[in-house]
Write a protein that binds this DNA or RNA. Structure first.
Lengths: 140, 140
DNA sequence: GGGTTGCCTTCAAGTAGGTCGAAGGGGGTA
DNA sequence: TACCCCCTTCGACCTACTTGAAGGCAACCC
């Protein structure tokens, strides 16, 4: 199967701009061109792109991804380094998930807090700011 | 209690650059200056910064955060809009956590895969790339 | 066959959110 | 007085896109 850049963009949930960016920066080394110089993607390209998207989404810089993809192309002798990279990425991602969960509970608290305020007001009865009690609202 | 910009940076785990950036962009409206024009932060400023860090870390653009902070200062009449903003942020964060968890399982798979390869090799016995079996390595 | 639409191309410029360096000032200590 | 350290502002730089301008090629319409 072969795909246009738009099909790939839709499939992967990223923009055509990003795909061109990755390609132009050497991260999609197997992409072909058709007779009009348009990019033509196949399933292997999609797999590579999948890796790129995964690593970018978990915060790996483009330069590191380039290095990782180079290692993949160099073969099994680079497995130990790739192993270390993926382990680092694993830890990084776990800690980012945990950070996000902490932030989420802060946000949950605010949602509940605002819901509570709204429950105690009749609809359309919010007091104007010049009349409100300012002492209790420091935590927003 | 009052704090220097460095103390705040350390407390919040962000750079002094970021703090100045937020201040310069009107997101820390209460920060004072001392007689030498240095920024002086108090506990209320820390609370505001905490909100900023939380919303930024969960992907809210600076402009939206500015708007949110404006709403907070306007008082209770803006509670419904703030409620909607925090609900949106809640959903966004939940879906980002879920995305990260999916990406994490891809990474876990690679870590396990590489560990498996390394287990089946004596140390320092990785084959040079020109001798390896290239057919099985498409998924990196 | 000429015009329009539409998708593609490249290259350059713009953007967000910081990050950093230069230049300079104030204050404390030796 | 010299030195050090931390602060300031302002402007340049950075990453990872994002967008715009200018133009090519093909397909359809009349």
């Amino acid at each position: 199967m072969s795909y246009t850049i738009h099909e790939v963009a839709q499939k992967m949930g990223i923009s055509t701009y990003s795909i061109r960016y990755y390609h132009d920066h050497g991260m999609l080394p197997f992409v072909q061109r058709d007779e009009n110089n348009n990019r033509v993607f196949n399933d292997v390209d999609l797999e590579w792109l999948n890796i790129i998207v995964c690593l970018r989404a978990t915060g790996m810089p483009v330069e590191r991804i380039q290095h990782y993809l180079d290692l993949v192309q160099e073969g099994d002798s680079t497995v130990p380094e790739r192993y270390e990279m993926m382990q680092a990425q694993q830890e990084r991602t776990l800690s980012e998930i945990s950070d996000l969960q902490n932030h989420l509970s802060t946000i949950n608290f605010k949602v509940d807090h605002y819901a509570e305020i709204m429950k105690n007001h009749e609809p359309d009865s919010f007091v104007p700011s010049n009349l409100r009690d300012t002492t209790a609202d420091q935590t927003a």
